[in-house]
Design a protein around this nucleic acid. Sequence first.
DNA 1: AAATCCATGTAAACGGTTACATGATTTG
DNA 2: CAAATCATGTAACCGTTTACATGGATTT
Lengths: 175, 175
Amino acid sequence: MLKHALLGLLHYREMSGYDLEQFINSSIGHFWHAKLSQIYRTLKALEEEGLVTSRFEEQEDARSKRIYTLTNKGLKEFQDWLTTFDTELDSTKVPFLVRLFFFGMVGKAQIEAQLRVWTDLHQRQLAYYQNIHIPEDVSSPDDLFFWKATLRFGVMYEEMVLHWLEEMKKDLGIV
Amino acid sequence: MLKHALLGLLHYREMSGYDLEQFINSSIGHFWHAKLSQIYRTLKALEEEGLVTSRFEEQEDARSKRIYTLTNKGLKEFQDWLTTFDTELDSTKVPFLVRLFFFGMVGKAQIEAQLRVWTDLHQRQLAYYQNIHIPEDVSSPDDLFFWKATLRFGVMYEEMVLHWLEEMKKDLGIV
DNA sequence: AAATCCATGTAAACGGTTACATGATTTG
DNA sequence: CAAATCATGTAACCGTTTACATGGATTT
């Protein structure tokens, strides 16, 4: 997945590993984060596969960068992936539901405390999504539409979780 | 995560690897699935750590099973994990949003087709969640409450995704 | 007779996380 | 002067997936 995400971002413009991390943090990182170390390793692998090329740009102030550029092969690989049809749902992993599943064995005070913390965390995350301003100049109107759609998903997801938490608290008699 | 899930399930009753997979498929598997091969390897690791013990039950009809039982150490480990406080959100991974992020580069016909397929898949998944009947005898009322809460999450998640898809289709002029 | 279920596992590969290692520049 | 930012990467580890391998019992 990260491979294709990197190819997609390099399709916009050539970038260094560090640039890619910055871009990811402000965009797809909300639903597919990646550590710098992983980005560097993945870029190396992509280069070995001939999907990107790199050149090292020496800077006098020691801010030297290795700039990665999409190859034709890389572009094709990306487009193939992009137009692949999903015909099954992704299997989602929601760690906090695993813990919640066993909460029948936990004391009520503990349950209340954890539900309040989750509520707080998701309220913050909702506020965070609501305050993101996409730099409108960086992409085409079409790109912008889908970028916004992913943020809208984030907002709706957090609202849903908060409703679900309120329902549960109500059922448990937690105010 | 799977380690603790297995410990939790073995807290209900002793089970074989195969039994555990069956149980998982009908419960936490909706948000944390595991392959049989992984379950067997994880049980082996748990045994090496002294968190479970096993005995091999020979059956004459070749349905021999290795039954795993929680040890005191395993119980303690599980309880420690269960009462650990979340203080940060899990970093979620939503693969289809990564692809959608780049849909500005895709033709409209393709977009429409994929949105329709996603709608169909999530409608099926919603129906699936709505039709699950938890065997009410297998667990205590408290356990049942939280089991239902996880299913309720599944329902609300699918409804949210469907609303989000409808919004997007409306914005794109797709009927 | 074929497919599915019951039941066990191993091995290789893959993707991701954490820790380590370095060093200059900018900001507070 | 300390902390954060810019910038690169390697190594070890861990969890998960996929493929392989076996074989009897039951259902269609």
